[in-house]
Simulated assay, not measured.
Amino acid sequence: MATPHHLTRYYADVDAGDIDAAQARLHPEVTFAIHLPAESRRGTTSEEMVGYLRGRGSVDRAHHLLRTGVDGDVEFAYGAVVEDGVTTTGHFLAAVRVADGLITRYQVSFDVELALLEVGA
Rank of each mutant, 00 (worst) to 15 (best):
F92H: 05
F92C: 04
G51Y: 07
P28L: 09
V82C: 05
E75G: 01
A99W: 02
V112Y: 03
V86Y: 08
E29C: 10
D60L: 12
L66V: 03
A62I: 02
G72H: 09
G85D: 10
E48C: 05
Q23I: 13
H6K: 13
P37R: 08
E48T: 04
R97H: 10
A77W: 02
Q23Y: 11
P4S: 14
G69S: 15
R42F: 04
V59K: 15
R42P: 00
T89Y: 02
D13Q: 13
G120A: 07
G101L: 01
R105S: 09
R25T: 09
F76K: 00
F110Q: 08
Q107G: 07
A80P: 01
Q23N: 13
E113S: 11
T88F: 03
E29Y: 14
Q107D: 06
S58F: 01
V86S: 06
A2Y: 00
A12C: 02
D71G: 13
G90V: 05
S46C: 04
H35T: 08
I19E: 15
T89K: 09
L114W: 06
G69F: 02
T87M: 05
R97K: 11
D84N: 12
A33P: 02
E83Q: 11
L116H: 09
L116A: 14
F32K: 06
V74R: 14
T89W: 00
V81M: 01
L26Y: 03
Y11F: 08
E118G: 14
R105C: 01
T87L: 11
M49Q: 13
A99G: 07
D13T: 07
R9H: 12
F76H: 09
A121V: 01
D15R: 07
V59M: 15
A2F: 00
T68G: 14
D100Y: 10
D71E: 12
T44Y: 07
G90H: 08
V112H: 07
V82G: 04
P28V: 13
E29D: 15
L7Y: 14
G51N: 12
L102A: 13
L116R: 15
R25S: 14
A62V: 03
Y106H: 15
V86Q: 03
P4R: 00
G79C: 10
R9L: 06
A22K: 05
V96M: 12
L102D: 12
D111Y: 02
R97W: 04
G43T: 06
V81D: 00
I103V: 15
G57C: 09
R56A: 15
V74I: 14
Y106L: 13
S40F: 00
L66N: 02
A121D: 11
T104H: 08
H5W: 03
Y52C: 03
L117V: 11
A16Y: 02
D71F: 05
S46V: 04
G72A: 15
F32V: 03
I19R: 14
I34C: 09
L53P: 04
E75D: 10
R42G: 11
T31D: 14
L65H: 06
H91E: 12
A2G: 04
A22D: 09
H27W: 10
S46F: 07
M49A: 06
E29S: 15
R9Y: 03
S46G: 04
Q23S: 13
T89L: 11
A121T: 01
E83T: 11
S46Y: 05
R56C: 12
H27V: 05
T87A: 13
L114E: 06
H91Y: 13
